[in-house]
Design a protein around this nucleic acid. Structure first.
Lengths: 216, 216
DNA sequence: GAGACCCCCTATCATTCGATAGAGGAGTTC
DNA sequence: GAACTCCTCTATCGAATGATAGGGGGTCTC
């Protein structure tokens, strides 16, 4: 029996609302999820939600922040390492963090929902993250580590993979998080590297960085 | 000025409804899109939609069919070729077809929406497609062409990439469809191949298959 | 013990939704 | 030219939605 992912003390209602909202946004989408659905899962009445959050959209904004801010920190780590190593380390850390997170992030990124003016900060953070990803790919190409490709396309492929791979339906409780993270990172690395002999070297250096606590 | 992607004769109202619905499902999701929105884009009143389709869900079912049936045909082609070649050919053909399609497929696959009993045939078709993808990966591993990996994870990574890469916001009118398709296929192939020296060989054989008209 | 605060409840509301009913116009057929 | 078919329209409906208002109970502080 795997250890419980949550500490013994009970979660606050606010935290439980966020977890229920995230899970249902992932399955049904933002608009396909009603506040009555979220409240029912938490075990409170629908209007009680609005004691903790001003609007339904405020719940989404909070969930976006909890995903985007840590992701930006992760991708900005390890500045001194070369691009392939940095990208690999970022992917490993990001996948591991997302799999371990109590929040299902797959339902957060809907084009039209994110256009709401109240979510401009979250939209900017997301764009900043995408820019960092492109920059990493561009640096890798310039350094000769990555083969020539469109950095934006590479970014899209990575983003698509991250979201669809992380929380697949039926993720087993005994999932090897580290193994899963490495598999995704390997896939991306191999897809981009120009000299595939480098794979093992990059893996070794990146794993050394990824498992080191604190800032690189 | 690139040639118009649609023939000169005007589209039927039914076709225009499907295109408008697909585009809006992609941006806003199924539930985030109202029938009033769809009708407004088509240029008819909201109740007029129900002359052409019995329900809003029937529109979704039709769009799913138009995506899934051709995709199943594509992945079942080229049975005689080896797995890596077949996978590459499938990806190239699929990406090319999806980019060229007048229907934006990104908004069609919502877990909860697909659970509706009226969409069981579409759900089955989707599962069949995923099974074929896993089977291709499994065959590739057994043949020593692909490195050992979880076929379901590989399938998820491919699916995630396909959907997020195909219709990225701001796809230019002069997009090199063939180039885009090849880039995605290359990324996947490199990610999976055990002997990376094979890349050029597989590419050549697969492109020969992918560009050949009719069944392989 | 009174007051403040927090967090829940019920009742309620305006708005939006998907869908139905029936009328009318244009085109086609006999 | 009448009848039929197709496809649009307006009017309308029941149901569901996000959010507000106000009340009540429990806990804490002074």
């Amino acid at each position: 029996m795997p250890p419980s992912p949550v500490p013994d003390e009970p979660l606050s209602t606010r935290q439980r609302i966020l977890q229920a909202a995230a899970a249902q946004f992932a399955r049904r989408g933002f608009h396909g999820t009603s506040t009555r659905d979220i409240a029912a899962e938490v075990g409170i009445r629908q209007p009680s939600l609005f004691h903790h959050f001003t609007t339904k959209q405020a719940m989404l904004a909070e969930l976006l922040d909890r995903d985007l801010q840590p992701a930006l920190e992760r991708i900005r780590r390890h500045r001194g390492a070369n691009p392939a190593v940095r990208l690999y380390a970022y992917l490993v850390e990001d996948v591991a963090a997302l799999v371990a997170s109590p929040f299902d992030v797959r339902g957060l990124y809907n084009d039209a929902v994110l256009e709401d003016p109240s979510l401009i900060e979250q939209r900017r953070a997301r764009e900043a993250l995408h820019a960092e990803m492109r920059s990493l790919v561009t640096d890798g190409i310039a350094a000769g580590e990555f083969r020539a490709c469109d950095p934006e396309v590479a970014r899209q492929m990575m983003t698509g993979m991250l979201l669809d791979t992380i929380w697949a339906a039926g993720v087993p409780a005994d999932l090897d998080v580290g193994g899963r993270a490495k598999e995704v990172a390997d896939f991306v690395l191999r897809g981009l590297l120009s000299d595939r002999g480098h794979v093992a070297l990059v893996e070794r250096e990146a794993m050394a960085l990824a498992t080191r606590p604190g800032r690189g």
